[in-house]
Design a protein around this nucleic acid. Structure first.
Lengths: 358, 358
DNA sequence: TTGTAAGCGTTATCAG
DNA sequence: CTGATAACGCTTACAA
């Protein structure tokens, strides 16, 4: 049975449409505000009335109308999540974390995946019109005037990527340490010439990962030739191109770190097409502990991001800042979650070392 | 700057909080209803007033408050999507389709991933309280009294999986043909003994896939030994167990079809652990054209589901039924989208045929 | 402690 | 064609 049919049927039979506060009030023989008080747990209500109301609520199966409540209270309990990320696994799991955190605290989430700036704006407008209480965003670039303006009116927090001003609560991966750990792992295996393949989008993750890589290399006293740093499109094809680019440069690297999962897939394919064996010819460290990285032959050493936790934490922070004014007034929190290097079989000692040992 | 601060600041300075209809009306020197009419494109408004209003709207940067609008109109433009699916790629992409269809038609989506029945109910309640216009669900089992009841009040459509009553619009994969095509492919290669590994959850997809398999086998006059049909948990571990189960039965199969992507990963691992080579020792057809299935060695032959299209179509159907009463009144539509068999390298002729040919 | 009345920002009804 | 006026379902003074 469809809704429209149902509606007609109900009114024809004279059945009440949807139970509202006044229906409960009538049933319980009290006034509307009293019912409201009971439902909201306001203290000063006589025990007897309270019980009568609760009974009526159950009996009638009353469900509050959040629309009316929101209109009156100027808060909706809806959080807008604007993800500029691609539809990769990482962003989906992060979104999952946000949703569950919201659910656990009585909020709902409207999600928008904005691949283009236009779509991003559309979603931003929608969020605004739905009067969302707060906004969680994963910026697509290092600046976005429209979002920036929206954030003036609506409490906003950044997750995964940042505009870089840190003027808002922010939840990020500790990209510096993550890349540092990867470099450490390779140097311990004896690698000196390490390449980095990263995305060319102007987003904070890429900037930080590159910097984390460079700093740790310097820390070990290792030179990084400019041609070892290859950036390309955020995609499988980008990974393929970057790999050929790196290997055709004539400069020798014994290991490569790839900062995005998408590109990693391209790198693997390019290496295969050149019949290079991993890790014998080249050690490889990728990003994100996805199923395919585990299922690969050989299983890939990767930097695992706590995607779910990042989302959960971001949303928890959002809600806390919405509900606690004093917290809200405090200096913005920048929370960096640690990555974990999952050492598997795509990393091993470099060829040179093999020879020296023999 | 935070919202709470801003609010205080604004009221202190005496600035108007948020532009509303009455502000525009005052600015344009007309009444509130007139502004409303202009904004909604109601015909009977003098051209001059219309222009004045439009100018004021721009000038003041008016943004409608959907809360008030929704309360008054008894429709919110929000669709609830309750996915009982796991957090696999397939369901995320399907969700993406739903979201984009909604966006394209001016709707927003509140998503809930309900792994447990309890979570499912929580989300259902939330959807109800937010007065969603419609519900799109992927049932977790073959019955759910709570959803069933909710669907009495709220237009509901089923996607990916169905309760089986077909009393509502439904968008599904053509599971019968999908499995049939897989069987055809294998029989053409010369296989006669084909195993099926499927999930033991009581969901329609598994039932239909099994049936599609059996029917096409029968069509080819091929017997299916009961021990060739192995069901287990919807997970990697389930796939591992099912594979050992099948291979330890003592009965010979030259090919296996696996109906879920999660289990497929387990199957591949189990085959590796037994040092069975694909497709030489065993041909393998899996489900879902995921990255890992493509990246595998050998690349896997899979049944590709049009996940995005299924979501998009479901949401489009939902919106059409919300907006077109006559469509809504019609018999429920059951839309089955075709799968595509992606033939890659995990399927080949059976060993016996090899010998006969030689 | 309880009930009456006003109001949140819209849209719909109905005179003018 | 336009403008008062009521209403959507709920919360929050304020009064009793």
């Amino acid at each position: 049975m469809r809704y429209s049919n149902l509606k007609i049927t109900l009114s024809e039979v004279g059945m009440p449409r949807s139970i509202k506060l006044s229906d409960v009030a009538q049933h319980a023989g009290v006034s509307v505000p009293t019912v409201s008080r009971v439902l909201r747990g306001v203290p000063n209500v006589a025990a007897e009335l309270r019980e009568r109301v609760q009974h009526s609520v159950k009996e009638l199966g009353y469900q509050p109308n959040r629309l009316a409540k929101s209109l009156r209270e100027h808060r909706t309990g809806i959080i807008g999540y604007l993800s500029a990320g691609n539809i990769a696994t990482f962003h989906h799991i992060l979104g999952q974390g946000i949703q569950n955190a919201a659910l656990d605290h009585g909020y709902a989430v409207i999600t928008g995946h904005g691949s283009t700036l236009e779509r991003e704006m559309t979603y931003a407008k929608i969020f605004e019109s739905y009067q969302v209480d707060g906004l969680i965003i994963t910026p697509s670039s290092n600046s976005d005037p429209y979002i920036e303006e929206l954030a003036q009116h609506i409490p906003t927090i950044e997750v995964d990527r940042t505009f870089g001003a840190y003027s808002r609560h922010t939840v990020l991966l500790d990209n510096y340490t993550a890349l540092g750990d990867a470099v450490d792992h390779l140097t311990e295996l004896g690698h000196h010439s390490i390449g980095l393949i990263y995305g060319n989008a102007p987003v904070s993750t890429e900037v930080e990962r590159k910097q984390g890589f460079l700093e740790r290399m310097a820390h070990h006293g290792l030179d990084v030739h400019p041609d070892w740093l290859i950036s390309d499109e955020y995609s499988e094809e980008g990974g393929v191109r970057a790999t050929h680019h790196l290997l055709d440069s004539g400069l020798h690297v014994s290991a490569v770190i790839v900062t995005t999962n998408e590109m990693l897939a391209g790198v693997v394919q390019a290496l295969r097409s050149r019949n290079l064996s991993i890790p014998h010819d080249l050690s490889l460290i990728g990003m994100d502990d996805t199923r395919w990285a585990r299922m690969m032959e050989p299983p890939l050493t990767v930097i695992a991001q706590p995607a779910y936790e990042m989302g959960y934490e971001a949303c928890r922070l959002m809600i806390r800042s919405l509900e606690k004014a004093e917290f809200d007034d405090a200096t913005p929190v920048v929370h960096r979650l640690p990555a974990r290097l999952m050492v598997r079989s795509s990393t091993g000692p470099p060829k040179e070392v093999d020879l020296m040992v023999q």
